[in-house]
Design a binder for these strands. Structure first.
Lengths: 113, 113
DNA sequence: CTCGTTCATAATCAATGGGTTATGAATTGG
DNA sequence: CCAATTCATAACCCATTGATTATGAACGAG
């Protein structure tokens, strides 16, 4: 546990991550990817309830937050949830009291980064 | 109402929580409260770098997200971090982080609550 | 080559949100 | 009582954002 540093660079990634996770539609897309695995934009649009451009933009934000990766195959783009992307947020939670009574054992392997 | 993506009931509180945590200033206030304990608005303003009304508004959001509690004493209002307020987010992390790491699809058990 | 599919980007709009200063209500101290 | 302190709210300002429709590029099937 390190001493708190005013506005470290960890803060920036936390900012981006929390912002990415703070939208319900975006979280729903991410949850779907986690549950169902790699999906095309088309498939995600079908279940998202918003327009295809919006899905693309949401996925773009998730990607910039390192929460998903994109793989292009022909005219389709497949997105995949990226486990390690949550690490900074998990770290934050661990430091600031989330670890007080919950089980994070499944995420311990992410703490390397 | 078209149900495209099935969202749990915790979605609403997660939304509020993630949004509350998605601002750096707000997180800094929360972190300070966690580290230093109960603080007055005046004290928090002194270390926040923003104006007092902004601090009040940030604290209001943290309070509505159940991340802090307020105690009034005379003309001062003391705010305290409330660790349990993070519970829905921790829950979300546990569910999707665990699913993420290893694909065991026993989601139904956890979605019971 | 041509047409439909898939996806991303641009233009646009309304709403939200972080920030400020100004104001006002309580409360405390002299 | 009067003045200063503490806090919350209101009135703005401007940047961001979620959402839409329109457009265009790239690719696959015929």
């Amino acid at each position: 546990m390190t001493e708190h540093i005013l506005r470290g660079d960890r803060s920036a990634s936390c900012d981006e991550l929390f912002k990415a996770l703070s939208d319900g539609t975006r979280r729903a897309l991410l949850e779907y990817l986690v549950r169902e695995g790699e999906q095309s934009v088309h498939a995600l649009t079908a279940i998202s309830g918003v327009s295809q451009p919006m899905v693309s933009r949401h996925l773009g934000k998730l990607k910039r937050a390192s929460l998903v990766t994109a793989r292009r195959a022909g005219r389709e783009t497949f997105y995949t949830a990226r486990a390690k992307g949550l690490a900074p947020v998990v770290q934050w939670m661990a430091v600031y009291g989330a670890l007080w009574s919950q089980r994070f054992t499944a995420l311990e392997d992410l703490e390397g980064y």
